[in-house]
Amino acid sequence: MRPETALLHPKKSIALLPKSSETTSVPANAKVVVGIATTGRPEILAELVDQLAKQSILPHRLIISYARPGDIAAIPQALRDSMSVEFVTGHMGAAVQRNVILDRIENEDIILFLDDDFFPHPAYISRIIEAFHSHPDVLGATGHLLADGARGPGLEIADANRLNENVETTPLLQVEDAFNTYGCNMAFRCSAIKRLGTRFDENLPLYSWYEDMDFSRSLLPHGRIVRVNGARGVHLGNKTGKGSGIRLGYSQIINSIYLARKGTYPWSHALKSAGRHFLINALKSFRPEPYIDRRGRLRGNLIGIGDVVRNRITPERAAILTISKVAS
């Protein structure tokens, strides 16, 4: 659920034709289940559901995992009925809410996870299906971001609509190997998930920093993880629903080390990531952006570093840290 890791490519390759090492193919008329884990963004979620109803290929099912009743209150009943939306609930947190969605998979071919503030181009689902159908060795895929508000103060729905409307259609499907999928938009082959028993790590609580990377890279020994350049969309990077800066700062340190120990994140990347975020938060805490709690994140970083020194690598501790009074 962060912008940076999906852009890291140890070795980039672009494929325009199917690979010869086939595994399990996906039919051209594949059944796609869209899963959305949401919290604290009811109006944005309602707009996303409305836009999913305008996809050139509609999802076979739409499952929304929410934490509180107010999270889904803005979706009109007529839209719920027309899209046959399925609602499930459970504890708050990206990993656990997505696992609740995984538990509802039936005979679908592709599971597409979208953040509640990711707005796909109308051809997005069509391009994802095409990528999985044309490349049988692909197990996970992420799309191409026309813009990512997570890198700044965030974008408005009008910005996403304008960008999606004005983008030119890509005539050629381009698929390139990726380091991991980006949590705001990521699709997986259901047969592989079921066969391997892949789950989101619920030891990564709340915002679940790097849960998307952990999940997608756990599939890498068995197939490819790619970016589909023709599957386009806009990530608003909305700042509501993110929680405490202290908790996020703690996760920036501890989750990297935890996943390196687990084996899904190379140590070279983990140490670089933890160090980079600590340095950025330390420098920017003197003149923080109004939309980021840099001092809270720095405090969380320091608590995390202290735990690393004590060899206490417990990412779930983020859920019980003192909440910063400043929005993260």
Rank of each mutant, 00 (worst) to 15 (best):
G245S: 03
A231M: 03
N185H: 10
A28G: 09
N180F: 12
L163A: 15
T314P: 00
S13V: 15
E108F: 04
L62F: 14
T89P: 05
M1L: 13
T322G: 00
G230D: 02
G35R: 00
D103Q: 07
R98T: 14
R127I: 00
F118A: 02
Q55E: 05
N229E: 14
V138E: 04
D148Q: 02
Q252N: 13
F200N: 05
K54R: 10
N180Q: 08
S191N: 11
A46M: 11
H135F: 15
T89S: 11
F215S: 04
Y258I: 12
R295M: 14
P205R: 05
G304R: 04
K325T: 12
V326L: 03
I105P: 00
Y258C: 06
R162L: 13
P171E: 13
E43I: 12
I105N: 01
N281D: 11
P136I: 07
R297I: 01
K284S: 10
H121Q: 03
D137T: 07
A318G: 03
P42N: 07
D307G: 03
G40W: 13
W209R: 05
G35N: 04
A131Q: 11
I75K: 03
P122Q: 00
R224V: 05
L248Y: 12
Y258T: 12
P10Q: 01
G243V: 11
Q97N: 06
M213K: 06
V138W: 05
A53I: 12
G230K: 04
V308D: 02
N255A: 04
A95T: 10
L62W: 13
A178G: 05
L139N: 01
T169F: 09
L16M: 09
R317P: 01
F118C: 06
K11P: 04
L271Q: 08
H121S: 06
